[in-house]
Structures are given as C-alpha cells and as structure tokens.
Design a protein around this nucleic acid. Structure first.
Length: 438
RNA sequence: GUGGGUGUAGCUCAACGGUUAGAGUGUCGGGUUGUGGCCCCGAAGGCUGUGGGUUCGAAUCCCAUCACUCACCCCA
C-alpha cells in the first residue's frame, strides 16, 4: 500500500475544521493588529537559508530538504519563514515604500528530524514579522500577538474560566556591541574545561556555545560553575531595551518570567528573545517563539533593516486546542434534502440553488434510497433539517420539513417554500448554540 | 543520528504455545413497504505489518526488517 512520507501527515476532514478555526482566528487577530498577509514560495535557493539562518546551525547542516534541480541549482524546502520573507521584502523593495512593514504568513515548513509528539517533518507555522522599527515596543507587540493568538484559542475552545497552563519566558541576547565580548570569554572558558564536558556539550561549545547552559547532566552543570554569564555582559542600551519591553508587558497585564539562559537556535537573533511554553505538550513544549534580528537583512546582502518576529507551531497549538476543547468541531449541514426518486430530485434542484446562493448549506445524495436510509444519512451529516420529498409530496405540491432535533415536522407548499425555509433557518441559526458551525 | 514501547476487523482493543482468531463500536440489510437517534435479529469485514527461524503445532517464543509512537538530540 502507498503511504505518506514519514513525518508528513494528512489533515483529515475530522480535523480540518479545527485547523480552519485556528487559521481564521489568527488571520482575524492579525487584521486587528494591522498586519498584512504575505505568501512566499515553499522552495527557495538554498543560499537564502544558509545566509539567513546560519551555515552552522543544525537546521541548515542536517535538517534541510536540499536537492539540485534540473538546472543544477541547489534548492531547499523552507525550514522556517523569516528568511524567505526577508528575501521577498528586499527583492521587492518593500522596505523603501513603507516606513514599517507588518506582515504575517501561514503555511508548511520542512525539517528532516525524527518525528515525535509535536514534531513533524512537514509542520505548519503561523509566522509574523515587523521590519523597520528598532523600538522595544515592536518586540513587545510581537510577544503580544503570540500571546493573543494562543490565549484567544484557549478562550475560544475551553469553556472554563481558569488560565491556560502557559509560561512566557523572555531574555536579551545582547547586541553587536556586547554579545561578542561574552561569546569570546565563554569560548575561552569552555575551551579550558573541554574535558569535563559531555560529548554533546563539547560539540555544542563550538556550534552554539550558549546551548551548553541547557545541558541537564550534573557533570556539565558542575563544569559550568563560574562560567561567564550573558547577563553580566549586556550593555546599558540592551538593558534599557529589555526594560521597556517588560514595562509594556506589564501595561497590558501579560505575565512573564525572565530566563537569563533562554537562547535561540538560529544565528540571526539579537536582543529580545522569547518563548511561550506549555506543560501540556510533552517534551516539545514551546508553542510560540521569536525575537529580534537586527542584523539579518545585512547578513542577506541588504541594507540595515531592524526586525523582530515570531512563529507559532500550528500542530502544537492544535494539540493544546484538542486538550482544551470539550468537543471537536464537526461539519454540519443546514438542510438535508431527502428526495426519493429522480422526479423529486429534479424538482428540488432550483430550490437547492437558491438556498446555496443564500449561504445555506444544503446536501442531497444522488442515490435512490428509502426514507429510513436518507434520514440516517441526514443524521450522519449533522443536519438541522431534513426536507422530505417523495411521491405523495409531489402529488400534493407540498414538501415536508422535519426538524431533526425536535422531531417535529411541517408541510410547506411548493409556492412558498423558499421564503419560508429562509425564515425558519434564520430563526434556527439565531437560537443555535453550535459555535463551530461553518 | 541514538534508545525505549507498540503493530490483531474501518476504529478501540481481547485471545495460557493448542479446535474455525473474538468483543465493543462503525458499515450494510431486516424487524417497521415513507420517518433518523433507543431496542431486537442478521450479514459483510482478517495473509494477526513483512520476511525468516524454533516447535508436532506460533497472533503468542527468537532474529531481522518496516511502520507507528515516546524520549534523547534539536526546535515551532
């Protein structure tokens, strides 16, 4: 049997509505924050990522789907969104048009990792970037967005009033005037204790030295005692920057903790960095993460263009929503047309056309079945009403409308069928508490 | 890339090395010729992931392989 690629998952109809809920809500929230959608290609020249993300990151070194196309160019499936967006902005000179660029995008990303809970090879991100402003308020607004979307989904899905189990951690990675001093000292420190570190950390101390602080082994924790800490190197400007972010977060009542050890895996980050972490996700607890990357545009061959952004992991947010929600949203139908025989089906077609024009979801199976089977099918499609149309109805020129929730039914004359149906549906929609209905 | 767990009906799961591999649920049909959910009856549905081995006999034990899954690593 043919199967999907490892780590690539089908989103089936039973799940797709929850995806739509999340995507719709994200789009709505972005609109309210004044963001515009941008859609960049899934495939880019490999150089976009090697220059953007950094050649010595794990993502670029061993996780990218890279291949040579028929022209001999090296192409890669995007492992994240920011580099591609930066490329598009610079290519189209968007930064010269507007003083500030506020964009978001939704879509699949690709990394060749070993799949586990909350981690797939094709996964989806909700991503946003603010380009132009160096203000800490931009950092704050990015965090605010991540917070708003994740918490908004909680409010939308969970009925309870208690807070979701989410932790916002922030930190500053320093800027080009202070970050390098720390890195230098840390490298020397690590070099001197090389033998005391675990093999992983020996490797890390070269590739991403800040990561050694994440190691859980006692051996490494001991070896790191007295190591130069980033917070002691941060320059006054960076301290002030982080403070303004904190003040803004306080102003809108977003709780957070400072985690001086919080780092990012991608090279382009500087100054503010943050993660939104859940305890309900297993080992991959980060739902959203991001930070500032003032040097990225230059690194990609563009002008100096400060930027800050974040990404939400859709699958992870979906896992949370599934845990929060008492029930999954299901597809529902307003009217299921239970027409028996060809004549009845033909008669119903013009009505169906008008109803659909009016935004009513109408379904009519083409199979000739008994009424019993048709009503069963109506149930399966979560229909609110069944419109019964058979021999006797055609003869009497009256259709039977059955309310499938209250089990009552009424006869409606063909002549007044449409206006009456629309009327009844309007009332039914108003009293319906099915928030998930599309 | 490394390690652990699990692979049996569409789905969720049973079955001591021993008859024809079962149950719940779902599907289809009937009870009720045109009235759904509840009830009753019936039917279909399986190369027990795949390949090898041990054994008189393997879903069951062993080996390999693949898939799924969780964790390490890394990250959203």
């Amino acid at each position: 049997m043919l199967t999907a690629i490892r780590g690539f998952k089908d989103i089936l109809p039973q799940n797709s509505l929850l995806w739509a809920v999340i995507e719709d809500f994200a789009r709505l929230t972005f609109r309210s924050f004044g963001f515009q959608e941008i859609r960049t290609p899934i495939l880019e020249k490999t150089e976009v990522f090697t220059r953007g993300i950094g050649e010595h990151t794990d993502i670029v070194e061993k996780e990218m789907y890279t291949f040579t196309d028929r022209n001999g160019d090296s192409l890669s499936l995007r492992p994240e969104a920011t580099a591609g967006i930066l490329r598009a902005v610079l290519e189209h000179n968007l930064h010269k048009e507007a003083g500030q660029i506020r964009v978001f995008t939704l879509g699949p990303m690709f990394r060749h990792e070993r799949p586990q809970k909350g981690r797939l090879r094709q996964f989806h991100q909700i991503d946003m970037e603010i380009l132009g402003p160096a203000s800490p308020l931009a950092d704050f607004e990015v965090i605010w967005m991540a917070w708003s979307i994740v918490n908004g989904i909680y409010e939308k899905t969970a009925q309870g009033s208690e807070r979701p189990d989410l932790r916002l951690e922030i930190n500053s990675l320093g800027c080009p005037s202070c970050k390098p001093h720390h890195r230098e000292d840390l490298l020397i420190f690590l070099e001197n204790r090389r033998e005391q570190l675990c093999p992983d950390c020996q490797r890390r101390s070269l590739s991403n030295p800040l990561r050694v602080f994440d190691c859980k082994l006692e051996q490494c924790k001991n070896a790191l005692k007295g190591a130069p800490l980033l917070r002691n190197y941060i320059c006054p400007d960076c301290v002030e920057h982080l403070k303004l972010v904190q003040d803004a977060l306080h102003a809108v009542n977003i709780p957070f903790v400072i985690n001086p050890l919080l780092v990012r895996g991608l090279d382009y980050y500087s100054r503010t960095t943050f993660e939104l972490i859940s305890n309900e996700l297993g080992a991959q607890g980060t739902v959203a993460a991001g930070g500032r990357y003032d040097g990225l545009a230059e690194q990609m061959g563009g002008p100096h263009l400060p930027g800050v952004g974040m990404a939400i992991g859709c699958e992870r947010l979906l896992l949370l929503a599934e845990q929060w929600a008492e029930q999954q949203p299901v597809y529902a139908t307003d009217i299921f047309v239970a027409a028996m025989g060809d004549k009845a089906m033909q008669t119903a077609l013009p009505w169906i056309k008008e109803l659909r024009k009016n935004g009513v979801s109408v379904l009519m199976p083409y199979e000739s079945k008994g009424l019993k089977a048709l009503l069963k099918a109506a149930d399966r499609h979560n229909a609110t009403f069944a419109l019964i149309l058979g021999e006797s109805e055609l003869q009497g020129r009256k259709a039977v409308l059955k309310d499938l929730h209250s089990h009552t039914q009424t006869e409606i004359a063909f002549e007044s069928l449409l206006p009456e149906l629309l009327d009844i549906l309007k009332i039914a929609k108003r009293t319906s508490n099915n928030a998930w209905k599309p």
